[in-house]
Simulated assay, not measured.
Amino acid sequence: MQDLKMASSCACGPDKDQQDKEAKLKNKLGRIKNKIVVMSGKGGVGKSTVAANLAAALSMQGLKVGLLDVDVHGPSIPRLLSLSTERPHIEKDYIEPVPWGRNLWVMSLGFMLPDNREAVIWRGPVKMGLIRQFLQDVAWGDLDYLIVDCPPGTGDEPMSALQLMGNDAEAIIVTTPQAVAIDDVRRSVTFCRELDAPILGILENMGGYTCPKCNEILNIFNSGGGEGLSSEMDVPFLGRIPLDPEVVRSGDEGYIYVKTHPESPAAQALLKLAEQISASHKG
């Protein structure tokens, strides 16, 4: 009889630990009003730039925002926000996110790598464990928005983020106008539907070139690809962000484009996106 009691106690141990973790995760997510995953089936579409500027634009409205970078193999959010040298404060039971401005807090694996040349060679379960830790152990507090920047594709990171955050996590899918990008982004729409993840809409980045002399927008790529895909897949179209060399420079130098160039057409498109999103969640 004693042996049976011991066996039963041992069997319950891991279950109790898992229940505690689930309760902690649920409690943390319950303090976040809106969760948005920024993703794309194609690399090089400016997804991280959109995520960083969207998070900053929402915080500039006075909203409390978290920005979580789950790109394990190529975390770029620290550079985009000029936070590459920052390190989060870590205690036994929690991790403090790195602040940017008054209303924006950031977390990325990039903060924890001792050398930016170091390759991260992890399989799927380890990635999911990291994303879970970032969601349940980071002291996000009460947030109006948590913006999650995912790596390109429909692999472990976006799947883990959406599954862990639940069915109220919404996706913004970023594309460029070219057909080669549209083909991959179409798969992102299907991916979200298979996971029952609601789609806020498709955003077309680099949709035209902003002339630095006259601010006229010139279509140097095919135009309308994102809007056409939105119509084809029956999802909302969130707008078009024109290509501006200053966006690239801002990312390299670590300053936020919507803050330093608020009157430019690209910044106006990003600020409008933030206003559109916050207005859709009011009430």
Rank of each mutant, 00 (worst) to 15 (best):
A169R: 02
V185Y: 04
A7T: 14
P78L: 10
N215K: 09
P14Q: 10
A197L: 06
L104C: 01
R187D: 06
V180L: 10
G155F: 05
M165N: 02
R249F: 09
L229Q: 06
V45W: 07
D15T: 15
Y94I: 01
S264H: 09
G74V: 14
L130W: 14
V37W: 04
Q178I: 08
I131H: 13
F111L: 08
P245M: 15
M206T: 03
I36K: 01
G44L: 10
I256Y: 05
I90G: 00
A197E: 02
M39G: 02
E22Y: 05
L270T: 06
Q163C: 04
M165P: 00
Y94A: 06
L229N: 05
I95K: 03
E96S: 03
L143S: 06
A57S: 15
N167A: 05
K127M: 15
W122D: 15
L135S: 13
L54D: 01
F191L: 08
P151V: 01
Y255C: 12
G226F: 10
L271T: 13
R31S: 11
C10D: 11
Y255T: 14
A55H: 08
M107Q: 03
E232G: 06
S231M: 13
K213D: 09
L80M: 15
I172M: 03
S84P: 05
G155L: 04
Q19H: 06
C12P: 05
C211I: 12
L58T: 03
G13N: 11
M39P: 01
A11Y: 11
E204G: 07
L130A: 15
P177Y: 04
I90R: 05
L162A: 01
G43T: 13
H281L: 15
G129D: 13
P75T: 11
V174E: 01
P125M: 09
L25G: 04
V180M: 10
G224V: 12
R132D: 07
S278K: 13
